[in-house]
Amino acid sequence: MISLLRHPATIVWLILAGVTVFSWWLGTDHGSGAPLQAHVNITTGVILLSLVKVRLILFHFMEVREAPWQLKRVCDAWIVVVGLVLIGLYRFATPGN
């Protein structure tokens, strides 16, 4: 049991769960009644945090960190492209943002 808790994946899980709870708090309670620009920045932050979580899952749970460099770069490219598209559409296509 102790060896399970000492496993590096346990630390990754703790970070992922912590970020989830933080994003949840950011996205729900925080900033109600705040100016629109604050919401836009908070949402951008929440999307960025989700992509950080995606990278942790890919590299640590899906073992991409031990994979050939080609797979690492394809995964990184997916994260960067998805981040640019989602944040780009959110910030520039949404009226008022």
Binding site: S23, G27, H39, K53, V54, M62
Partner: peptide, 14 residues
Amino acid sequence: LLWIVLFPLLYLMK
């Protein structure tokens, strides 16, 4: 991983 992206988009995006 897919849920990690889906959750903020549907539930949290303001």
